[in-house]
Design a protein around this nucleic acid. Structure first.
Lengths: 151, 151
DNA sequence: CTCAGTGCAAATATTTTGCACTATG
DNA sequence: CATAGTGCAAAATATTTGCACTGAG
């Protein structure tokens, strides 16, 4: 049984904005470039810090547009500010390393199948779902095995 | 296939606090009583509004204790303040009506099984998971069918 | 009496909004 | 030039902390 591999549908973030009738401006390109080079999920405040020339309000407004466009996922971590990550796959879920906070993503058709079968047990119509898996990532496992400590 | 029904393990919230070495005080009893009569999930701010005699700080501190004790679940809704609900079952997930915001809970062994099988595909050790299912609840379905509108 | 618990107000943290200014089409 | 976009600062929202006071053991 060949389980799904991640299907990368690289959405050009600027295009996602333009598709919503928003202009491609210098500021938005700057923000989007910073987001696209990020390997990890990020917070709004991180973007503001990394882009001192850009107003906080613009950062928040751009993030909101991207989330509305479905190009970014908002991940309300249990404490503190929510993080955002690029929606690289059509529908996916996130893994969050409980040691280092790194966020990964995965897609698995099993989850979707389960979701459909749950429909019978649930008191209403399912319109969506969200799942986060908390892990200890391989890097942290390696680090802890080798005895090194993390700050 | 007999799917799991919800297993209600009514945790006495005050007991949960006492188990952590915290005292049973009048203020905490007030807060806990308000939480226990709630059928729905609630926000910290709602508690403060409903309990004018109790300081905001105490409400937040008590909620934090209850979450730490595992007696309350913190549900970071996508926007706005997080909501809390009593952890009535050992491990469960939440349904959130996207129309009226009502939060329900369910437990299903299928989910747990899937989680275990996902271990193979995931880059690290799974230490936990969280799932929320967005629904249109039966009441809202009924309301929309009957043509009445919601504020 | 001692220290946990509490209320209040101030401090933080996060996000949104008002407004004047800039720049795009 | 009409209007979308922007930066800044203030406002709004959400939560935590400092501190003096109260109350339980």
């Amino acid at each position: 049984m060949p389980s799904d591999t991640v299907i990368p549908i690289e959405i050009d973030l600027i295009t996602a904005l333009e598709d919503r009738g928003l202009r491609k401006t210098a500021t938005r390109s700057t923000i989007v470039a910073r987001i696209e080079t990020a390997n990890d999920a990020f917070t709004a405040e991180q973007l503001c810090r990394d882009l001192p020339g850009v107003g906080r309000a613009t950062v928040y407004r751009t993030i909101r547009h991207l989330v509305d466009a479905g190009a970014l996922c908002k991940l309300p971590i249990l404490d503190g500010a929510p993080m955002y990550s690029i929606a690289r796959v059509e529908h996916h879920h996130h893994t969050i390393c409980s040691k280092c906070g790194t966020i990964g993503e995965f897609r698995d058709s099993t989850v979707e199948r389960v979701m459909r079968s749950l429909g019978k047990e649930i008191d209403g119509d399912i319109v969506g779902h969200r799942m986060e898996i908390f892990i200890t990532c391989n890097r942290c496992l390696g680090i802890s095995k080798s005895g090194a400590s993390i700050a």
